[in-house]
Design a protein around this nucleic acid. Sequence first.
RNA 1: UAAGCAGACCGCCUUAUCGCUUUAGACCAUUUAGGCUCUAAGGAGGAAAGUCCGGACACCAGAGGGAGGCAUAGCGGCUAACGGCCGUCUGGCUUAGUUUAAGUCAAGGACCAGUGCAACAGAAAGGAUGUACAGGUAAUGCUGUAGUGAAAUCAGGUAAACUCUAUGCGGUGCAAUGUCAUGUAAACCGGCAAUUAAGUGUUUCCCGCGCGAUGCCGGAGGGUAGACAGAUAGAGCUUUUGAGUAAUCAAAAGUCCAGAUAAAUGAUAAGGUAUUACUUAGGUAAGAACAGAAUCCGGCUUACAGGUCUGCUUUUUUU
RNA 2: GGCUCCGUGGCGCAACUGAAUAGCGCAUCAGAUUUCGGCUCUGAGGGUUGGGGGUUUGAAUCCCUCCGGGGUCA
Length: 125
Amino acid sequence: MKQTFPKKEHLKRKKLIDALFAGGQKVSAYPLLLVYKTSVLPEEGIAIQAGVSVAKRNHKLAVTRNRIKRIMREVYRKNKTTFHTNGSTFAFMFIYTGREVMSYEQLEKAMLKLITNFNAAQNES
RNA sequence: UAAGCAGACCGCCUUAUCGCUUUAGACCAUUUAGGCUCUAAGGAGGAAAGUCCGGACACCAGAGGGAGGCAUAGCGGCUAACGGCCGUCUGGCUUAGUUUAAGUCAAGGACCAGUGCAACAGAAAGGAUGUACAGGUAAUGCUGUAGUGAAAUCAGGUAAACUCUAUGCGGUGCAAUGUCAUGUAAACCGGCAAUUAAGUGUUUCCCGCGCGAUGCCGGAGGGUAGACAGAUAGAGCUUUUGAGUAAUCAAAAGUCCAGAUAAAUGAUAAGGUAUUACUUAGGUAAGAACAGAAUCCGGCUUACAGGUCUGCUUUUUUU
RNA sequence: GGCUCCGUGGCGCAACUGAAUAGCGCAUCAGAUUUCGGCUCUGAGGGUUGGGGGUUUGAAUCCCUCCGGGGUCA
């Protein structure tokens, strides 16, 4: 599996997103918060559809929001193969809860920690 | 050489690897749709911002008539248009000062059409009256000065007070609007019958106009936020020449320069430039400001590190 | 993306048809009352009227512009 993140793997359906926030489970590793839910995805052959989000409350400028979202997408793209899905399909939403702008390295550490937490939660269930 | 003012312009660069997206071609697959495929080319701004003005474009028969409302305001010009820009007159302010010059600001039409307002002070603030001194008269605030105040009888002041005059404005906005796919209603459309009046229609009110409870018959589509069009070749950009004091206009040649939609333009590594700090003058360390297209243009306003050019003024040195 | 409304002491409001000490309640502080505290009574402090500019003799009020906060439209 290559380290790509094409449009098909973006979470875009409003219904899926609404259902995700209504009944999703949460895993966090500061400054990242992952909301996830097993869902029936519209595209075949894809395990995960993911989206990223940064609150306007914490970051007022569009420039900083764009930058954080780009770094989050990049970190997810590099490390997405290490999520253990166990054959299920998931909808993901990554939310940036920090108030400061973090570098790529810091965010990658947080993402790795988040992945271990997620995999532990999956193995329990 | 240094400083200040004004105007115009630019607003980080190079390479490699991994990604995103648009277009074109190839390849693969195919009923259609398409693609963890390959190659090539393109991929944020001067403000993309605020949404303060002006347009283009689209729809609304409540687009008609009237009233109301809003905007603008010396004069002339530019423009698709403007509350913008250019020129000019007048006035205020600042600087230098002899006349005056330079810069800067101005909603700068009209209180001999009407109405209103004027705290405190003052005799009196606009059909009301009078203090002191002086002058004058047949007589009288009749005249002058003083005094209060922003303003005191003067065609008084005030219109970013109502208002009047002139000019302009229909309303709503790309979440406008159109098409397609899916396709089940009590929702929609047409006709007829019945009802005559509440309601309703993207327009502040009135007039006018359309629809209009329900039943029958026939047609057909709403929701679902999916896809496509609208939507990127334009009042475009670059250069040259000409007209004009200028804004701007004309002609010729060349050129194609983002089109996303839970929303692309990024990440990592290495090196470098402007600059800053330290300095043993070899170097070491830090290292770009404001900020991110969303239908598209013309302005205005606001944010902004640093740099380049032009003009003017002052200053230093040299000839 | 469009449209629209609002900013007055710590909090909630008034004064918005220009006139000089910007007012009211709660809260705060001090005093009185009480053995102490509360309630109550008396008094005091606290405001660049969101920032800046303009009109005017005079601006919380009228106008322009920036900042902040809400509401609404498929």
